[in-house]
Amino acid sequence: MKAPDFDYARPSSLQEALALLAAGEGGAQPLAGGQSLMPMLNFRISTPEMLVDLSGLPELRGLEQTPQGLRIGAMTRYCELEAFPDLAKIQPLVAAALPHIAHDAIRNRGTIGGSVALADPAAEMPAILLALGAVISLDGPNGPRDVAADDYFLGYYETACEPDELITSILLPKIEPGDSFGFHELVQRHGDYAMAGVAIRSSGIAPLAGLRIGFFGVADRALRVTALEDALNGTDGTDIAGALSHLSEIDFQGDTKITAETRAHYAGVALKRALKEMLT
């Protein structure tokens, strides 16, 4: 379980990094925290010709509160986000979810940008971005651009980020008075990838309004079901049986642990429990 040979570069500026990616013509792979990429290299599932280590790019670092919200540099590690002052007040959903993301050792190295770039369907962060209506800032040969989270996660490990682009930062919009948040995931062991999970933002709780519900660990990607959100908006969130019927829009996936059928049931349970916790 040793990675095959690859070239390695550690650029010191974003421009340099983008140039390396462009020159690699798809053979260069950005390396962020390495928590998913390194095992894939060692399993020889991923065999890039070059790794472009992003750890030396000042443009991708930093956590900053702006009038628009919390701007998270793509190379911000989970542990840095966890340690950000007053995170529970600034972004309660993120603060609530972080302890569920893997384990300390992984959060010490894993980066927010890395997780979003990989877009593992069972990872928490993509669903959180959907719930919060986050904006993902990219840069590449054609210049910088912003992509809404809703337009970013396209499929199984597939995103709007082109191979020659990099995520530079992620903006979590400022929360408004009255905003409520919910998070629940079903895992056999703390820190595992979820069998199903939800991250929720609502601009009110009695009644629910402007709901954004990000599901993860259910299908090929983190996703929202707007019909389900619409069915819950305006209700008090206690009787969700009807709304749950919209889960049928999700193409639930089975794996070695559970069938698609059980996963569909768990998604409903996760939603019900997250709402219950929000409303009490």
């Binding site: 079903l186 056999q188 069998m195 642990k257 559970i258 069938t259 059980t262």
Partner: peptide
């Protein structure tokens, strides 16, 4: 006794 087996 996995969750799914118990549930089934």
């Amino acid at each position: 006794m996995t969750p799914e087996r118990v549930l089934q």
